[in-house]
Nucleic acid binder design. Structure first.
Ligand SMILES: [Zn+2]
Length: 256
DNA sequence: CGCCTTTGACCTGCGC
DNA sequence: GCGCAGGTCAAAGGCG
């Protein structure tokens, strides 16, 4: 038993972190129940308003015979959810589960394509959940697909329109261009940039106003998880909490 | 060598 | 299903 647990823990460490770490988190609570010799996972509460089970245990695979086997008569619960494998780092894994578990899953970035057609503030989100499940001392990884109605994550999205001859302006951040598309009914293209800082997925689009080409429209999407590389920040430590916070900032001398 | 553009291909949702 | 439009990928090349 202890060997199986250590083995499972080692396997858990090898699992790669998945998903995006940007944006608000979707908080889901799970519990399992038993129906017709099959086990289901359903999410409850959190930001979820309504959910439905989208996938059962895998129909085929290593755990097939196990899940089709009726539970032992003297067991009230066929298995325990012993742990979660989290998508995002920084969340605290619960120590143990009997019937319930909670987890934090980071939804994909709230791009227009991911939540297309959802203007009411709600969207359907399908997430893949990897659970480490224990059954009579054996640990098995199970992948669920859960479809839930969630709040659309708020993305800071702000656009600037300015009269400018040139499109590239120094906004204090470094950007890497990753796309260029022609805009319908406009002679000018639209350029797509991503923030160059690793781990930051802020994007911006730059295009000329199709109604008045002397104006440039710059749209920023997302919030930087770092500070501007072109600014010197002064930090101060709070005596009570020990946390550091920004006390001021200044453009370094010599930079135009 | 590291970081940047360029650019066609690719993906996905939507309307017909 | 098909084509369009918007958005993204990734291989290749540019440049200090
Ligand atoms: Zn950034």
């Amino acid at each position: 038993m202890a060997a199986a647990s250590a083995e499972a823990a080692a396997a858990a460490e090898k699992l790669p972190a998945r998903g995006s770490s940007l944006g608000s988190s979707l908080r889901l609570k799970f519990y399992h129940y038993k129906y017709d010799h099959q086990y289901f996972v359903e999410d409850h509460g959190g930001f979820t308003r309504r959910s439905e089970l989208h996938g059962l245990f895998p129909a085929a695979g290593p755990g097939e015979h196990f899940f089709r086997r009726p539970p032992a008569a003297n067991r009230t619960s066929g298995f325990d959810i012993s742990d979660f494998i989290f998508f995002d780092e920084g969340s605290t894994p619960p120590t143990s589960f009997a019937q319930f578990g909670t987890g934090v899953i980071t939804p994909p970035p709230a791009t227009e394509s991911a939540y297309a057609g959802q203007s009411s503030g709600a969207a359907y989100l399908q997430v893949e959940v990897v659970l480490l499940v224990r059954f009579v001392g054996i640990y098995i990884y199970v992948i669920y697909m859960i479809r839930a109605e969630v709040e659309r994550p708020r993305t800071e999205r702000i656009a600037f329109r300015m009269k400018s001859e040139v499109e590239i302006v120094d906004d204090g951040f470094r950007w890497r261009k990753y796309g260029k598309k022609s805009v319908k009914n406009s002679p000018n293209p639209r350029n797509y940039y991503r923030c160059s800082t690793e781990g930051c997925s802020v994007k911006k689009r730059v295009e000329r106003d199709k109604d008045d080409p002397s104006y440039v429209i710059t749209t920023y999407e997302g919030v930087h998880n770092h500070m501007s590389p072109g600014v010197v920040y002064y930090t101060t430590q709070d005596a009570a909490s020990g946390r550091y916070f920004v006390a001021g900032c200044q453009i370094p001398p010599g930079s135009s």
